[in-house]
Amino acid sequence: MIFEESTDNLLQVNSLKTYYKTKTGFVKAVDDVSLFVDRAKVLGVAGESGCGKSTLVTTIFRVTPRNAQVMSGEVKYKGQDILNMDLKVFRRDIVWKEIAYIPQASMDVLDPVYKIKDQMLETILEHEDLSKADALERIYKALENVGVPAEKADMFPHELSGGQRQRVVIAMALLLSPSMIVSDEATTALDVITQAKILELMKSLQENRKFSMMFVTHDLSLLANISDSIAIMYAGKLVEFGDVEKVFGNPLHPYTQLLLKAIPDLRYRKQRRLVAIPGFPPDLENPPKGCRFAPRCPLAMPICREVEPEFSRVEGFHYVACHAVNKK
């Protein structure tokens, strides 16, 4: 799929299909997803559990479980097909150096038996030919930049608070000055205030250093605050993709519309009631025919249960896969 709106595209995902092989068939975890991230921009990917957003991330980093299979499609980074690149070259030249990963900093992301600085040293020295002193200097600077005092580098992960651990993980991702950061539920386990502070940090780092970011989360409201474009996934499909103002200001897909009504918003707590989307997400091994959201959709028409809606442009940078919208 060619996106006209992509002016300076850094990462492009084209009709990607990643399926998990099971005893009885395939779980279509990522099914025909196309999106892009421009240079120095933030793409937010949102969806509920099981929508395929994590599979998308693991596919990009080529760390999918063994039963996962990329059925078709490609992931291009700076025009290079990174899915078919030699794995060793990919690990050496792309991961960390070009695309870095910020996971949820739960206890197990940082190895509990190594000091912070040793873990960071390893990351640097694996990719760059640097003296240890220079590397350490870079580490201290990186920690200061994320608001962690340099002396914490000598501590073990469990001696830090959750917020500080998350900051360390961010500092680690930025060590090799990558052009792109992928963050997967990076702030999910944090307290609200810490989360706000971490988001503020990530946003300011992103603006200062001009790296691109793919921010994956289940929390749509976060994305409103930090991303430039938004991709909404449902049951392995990309249902809506576009400029952040357009998606929040004029959500087109019924799923997006309902999701926004399900999110508490203190401004409107008296005017609105929270709305639940009826039903439950489908079984991805045997997804419903036609649109996957049709069984839960209040606007579903007969055609929705028969034909898969095409992912198409509405106006400007705003794409949606919905018969109800496409017909207009």
Binding site: V192, K197, F248
Partner: peptide, 23 residues
Amino acid sequence: LITAVPIPDPSERAKLFSVKIKE
């Protein structure tokens, strides 16, 4: 606590980043 709650509206961005707390 209230300021830190993200609002699902891109035009309210400034609020989330105005949480007052000691770094």
